[in-house]
Design a protein around this nucleic acid. Structure first.
Length: 412
RNA sequence: GCCGGGGUAGGGUAGUUGGUCAUCCUACGGGACUGUGGAUCCCGUGAGCCGGGUUCAAAUCCCGGCCCCGGCCCCA
């Protein structure tokens, strides 16, 4: 027997039904805001991934060498590939450009609850603006998706990396990234050491990092150095208030990716425990890294698999049952296929192919949760009829083949 | 990268101070029952993660690996 590679999964029909259902809702909401789907390669040159991703991502790159000795990497996320596409081919389209994707990603990490080596992300990028209006739009969009999915237990946390970077503006960018990396890891002792000889208002920095609560807390830093940033932040929050989006301020959010530069947000589904983060995003600058003019951008990604887990925890993924037909032909005549063709215009109709006796076929229909069985034998054919057995109500009627379509329409 | 717990038919399990043919339930295929489902009975299919070691003998003990579950960190 062969086993799956570590950290990968097989999705069986029952599970795929749920996943497609969720996917379709996400797709619909994204599209309703004007976002258009894009698809990029499953693997990229490794440099694209390492360019500006962050320590953690770099450590977990799923890379390989191809036969042409190229160093390639399975994509760990889609923001960088999408921005490469933007730089390569979409730079001169009218702004803003609204793109979305639902695709698999790969990270070479230790699998555990809600963490896999192959996982799916569903995200959007809004290219051309990082105005408060734009940022508020994407956060509201994420919120809308969760509402349409029916999820109750989630919390939107909003921070601002621009504020953190502003306080650190005397430190060179590389070191800033490293500091933010340790902030993200919660190793504040290391951060303190790194700031020792820097001209940075350390008291302010650590105070800001710990700020968490509703928007009033921003008043404390709405002065001097940070005034403009707080103003920008507040405008975004104003708009979210107007949209009716509930959120929490959390300035300790540093994000593991180095390209973030402004408002950032994370959404948690607390019931998921360790892997509770179901969404992350914010304002970033990446276009210039791939050779385009600097372009303000914002975006986010849902962890699709975690979304599924969160929805399951809240019992929101019961499968809706559509009528499902089984056609049992007792004789093989043209009419059998005519009937199948008619039913298939409306519902799934499978054909009995095991050459089973009627009783066994019905037994099968029963366990497979077939809702309607069609029986076609000599008797029925003589009268140009088909026997339709409703498995749930346990009633059987004969219907003229000519009138079958009317019957099906009523079921819809 | 670090730390715990595991691995017996497709799913769920029993069994071990090493010693018959590895238990039972379920699922699957067929039959009893020749064109009418959910019950019952019968028959059949089907297993000790992989590799090595100890031993007359290993599912059981030891070592290594693989995989799964979970926690830390991080991420989605």
């Amino acid at each position: 027997m062969f086993t799956r590679p570590r950290g990968t999964r097989d999705f069986l029909p029952e599970e795929m039904k749920k996943r497609r259902k969720v996917e379709n809702i996400i797709r619909k909401v994204f599209e309703s805001y004007g976002y258009e789907e894009i698809m990029t390669p499953t693997f990229e040159h490794i440099e694209l991934i390492t360019a500006k991703s962050g320590e953690e991502i770099r450590r977990s790159i799923y890379n390989f060498r191809d036969k042409g000795n190229r160093e390639l990497a399975l994509r760990p996320e889609l923001t960088a590939p999408v921005m490469r596409v933007y730089a390569n081919e979409l730079q001169f389209k009218p702004k803003p450009i609204r793109l979305y994707y639902i695709a698999n990603c790969f990270r070479y990490e230790r699998p555990q609850a809600g963490r896999f080596r192959e996982f799916w992300q569903a995200g959007v990028e809004l290219i051309g603006s990082s105005s408060p209006m734009a940022v508020a739009e994407i956060i509201a969009l994420a919120d809308d998706v969760l509402k349409k999915l029916g999820l109750k237990d989630y919390e939107i946390n909003i921070g601002h990396i621009g504020i953190l970077r502003k306080i650190l503006s005397e430190v060179d960018e590389k070191k800033q990234n490293l500091i933010l990396h340790y902030v993200d890891k919660g190793e504040l002792g290391v951060v303190e050491d790194m700031l020792k000889n820097e001209k940075v208002d350390k008291e302010l920095f650590f105070k800001v990092l710990k700020m968490e609560g509703d928007r009033d807390i921003l008043d404390e830093i709405n002065n001097g150095l940070l005034k403009d940033y707080v103003k920008d932040f507040s405008r975004t929050l104003d708009i979210l208030d107007i949209f009716g989006v509930k959120y929490k301020i959390n300035l300790g959010i540093a994000r593991g990716l180095e390209y973030y530069s402004g408002v950032v947000f994370e959404i948690y589904a607390k019931r998921l425990g360790a892997q509770k983060q179901i969404c992350g995003g914010g304002v970033y600058s990446l276009a210039h890294v791939f050779g385009a003019k600097p372009t303000p951008t914002c975006g986010f990604a849902f962890g699709f698999d975690r979304l599924i887990l969160a929805l399951e925890k809240e019992n929101l993924l019961s499968d809706d049952k559509k009528p499902r037909f089984l056609l049992i032909p007792m004789v093989l005549k043209k009419e059998v296929f005519d009937v199948a063709r008619i039913v298939r215009k409306y519902f799934a109709c499978e054909m009995e192919v095991m050459e089973r006796k009627l009783k066994k076929a019905l037994e099968y229909a029963n366990t497979r949760r077939i809702t309607h069985v069609l029986i076609l034998g000599e008797d029925e054919l003589k009268r140009k009829e088909v026997a339709v057995k409703d498995m749930e109500k346990n009633v059987q009627i004969n219907i003229k083949i000519d009138e079958l379509e009317e019957y099906l329409k009523k079921l819809k």
